[in-house]
Design a binder for these strands. Structure first.
Lengths: 344, 344
DNA sequence: TTGAAAGCGGTACCAT
DNA sequence: ATGGTACCGCTTTCAA
């Protein structure tokens, strides 16, 4: 028969230290309000007993939690890992902890994760969705806890958000190629309006062309997904064209696609970047194995996460009279060998 | 002056449905014990009020949580993402949720994450450490909650663990190359005993050589890290050798390294796999951009996660008389173009 | 089947 | 500076 031994509580500590529970609670939460001497005794009792405070009880009694949740729809994407790391590091100094939930998920699972954090009564939520999630967000906010939307431009001025300027990313990419004298551009990834980054990057490319004042053209090639395999397929299409009809500059909407394009082209003897310059557009660190260093546009995941957490802390701090902000971070161009120079 | 409005509680639901809180709790936790009619009324009240149960209070009162924590030292590594996904999917049917904490971490941060889950009173913990973590584990287990160690062979028979047979992985890799007639092998990654997978894979390679019965040799090349960049450096060293002294088969201890080696070799005109066959050893999905499909040894991250969660559930179920198990999963060879055939 | 009430482990206010 | 003590919101006997 097992004695159902409960774990040591604050009462046990109090008893052992010869003080009241209130005092123990104080040394845990407001050490300054306690005499160094008693504090020492309590600390020692805690140590001897191996006491670990129950965060559930603490959250319940205090009425607020020291955690914030992050729901990202795809943890396999390095952008989200960067965001998580950024948010984490911004949370720590404020005494908060970041909890990640789920991965490999669809919209429904995302909903269940949001609900999960809702039940856990986290202080706030950072959400990196792939589509409009207004309903999920509203449900969560009804409990008067802040939400910051990240990496998705959701248009609701009543919510803080942090995004990277995807249109600018596309523009920077196109301007880079134009500045290198490329005049026949191909945009790989397509204008699937359901995938925001893709859509906006394409708009940026168009804008760059319009503003450039040079005679240049850009075509768009849709792909079924954004993985290397599709890039290889596009490369094969390019190879099917007579040399004079081929693009001289390719902007792939993700680094993964770009990798595939380069793979496909170089395997067939096309020289990158001499014959065709190829660049990516998201600085997906974990997706680049580095045959040819890839020119890309860095999307600042870490900064996104840090900024999001700062907005969250701000809102937590200011309460109801907080003014929601929409922060737009600027991506920046990373020029490497896949568009300039020739190393092979 | 803000009315400090608290969120709707089970009491509110009870009142609205005209029942007692006990009954509401029952429809939440044991729906069968309640008349369909009352259940319906309660459910409706919940709906109308937008009630969301407070998981902290629930955990506190029930004495057990419906979450299990996963601490992985590097979320940027696809192996860990696979493990998380596997664990997640095994947890759901059991009514549990998986919480991930932290990333980009060192040993100390790992400790704080473990402590964090300890405070949260999760039902169990899955830990994917990079080094011996006996002390952290002990602290957690003192609270009588199960821990499963994953992806690290920690030798403690008192704890469940799931690992992939790294020695077998090395052996499979070497046997593959030997079967292709390669006789001058190079193992890239080195025998850093602090990094378990590297160490054991090397042992497996040696074993394969010993057992093969053919005249073959293998050398070992240490690298400062396991990233593509180091692979490129190794490629350059190889290129510095006279052709007849070069290896004809390379086993890189990670796919990232392998990618770098291939990059470096092919850029200099070496034909892979004709001149030199190159393979990786961890099936790091997110790190392969696919110039040349890479032969590798798949390390079954998803299965590791699923198995770990199953062991955890088992221990949760069986309580103190649970017998700890050490599950060793078998990796398997994935033969692709970087070792056989010739596509360019 | 449903209701009443005693906790679960802390927190924080109010006294002392 | 410390102690006493109502809760926090829910679960779970135990009775009715």
């Amino acid at each position: 028969m097992e004695a159902k031994r409960r774990s040591t509580r604050i009462y046990d500590v109090a008893e052992r230290a010869g003080v009241s529970v209130g005092t123990v609670s104080h040394v845990l939460n407001h050490p300054a309000r306690v005499t160094p001497a008693t504090r020492e005794r309590v600390l020692q009792a805690i140590e001897e007993l191996g006491f670990v405070r129950n965060a559930n009880a603490s959250t319940l009694a205090a009425g607020h939690s020291r955690n914030v949740g992050l729901v990202a729809i795809d943890l396999g994407n390095s952008m989200f890992v960067d965001i998580a790391n950024g948010a984490q590091s911004a949370a720590r100094p404020a005494g908060l902890d970041l909890l990640l939930a789920g991965s490999e998920d669809d919209y429904e699972t995302q909903a269940s994760k949001v609900a999960f954090f809702d039940e856990a009564r986290v202080s706030g939520l950072i959400l990196a969705p792939m589509q409009d999630s207004a309903e999920q967000i509203e449900r969560f906010r009804k409990h008067r806890r802040p939400v910051v939307v990240v990496n998705y431009d959701h248009k609701d001025p009543g919510i803080c958000s942090v995004i990277v300027d995807n249109e600018l990313a596309g523009q920077l990419a196109a301007e880079h190629l134009l500045s290198l004298g490329r005049r026949r551009l191909l945009f790989v990834g397509g204008d699937n309006p359901a995938i925001q980054p893709v859509h906006f990057r394409w708009l940026g490319v168009e804008r760059a062309l319009r503003r450039s004042g040079v005679q240049a053209q850009v075509e768009m090639q849709n792909t079924p997904d954004l993985e290397p395999g599709s890039g290889i397929a596009v490369a094969e299409q390019i190879l099917g064209l007579p040399a004079e009809e081929r693009p001289d500059g390719v902007i792939a909407v993700t680094d993964g696609l770009a990798a595939g394009v380069i793979e496909g082209l170089t395997a067939a003897g096309v020289r990158v970047p001499v014959d065709i310059a190829v660049m990516g557009c998201d600085h997906n660190t974990s997706a680049w194995t580095g045959r040819l260093p890839l020119t890309t546009v860095a999307m600042q995941g870490r900064e996104v996460g840090e900024t999001a957490m700062q907005l969250l802390l701000e809102e937590l701090d200011q309460g109801p009279d907080h003014e929601h902000r929409r922060v737009v971070l600027e991506p920046h161009l990373l020029v490497r060998a896949s568009t300039v120079g020739w190393n092979g």
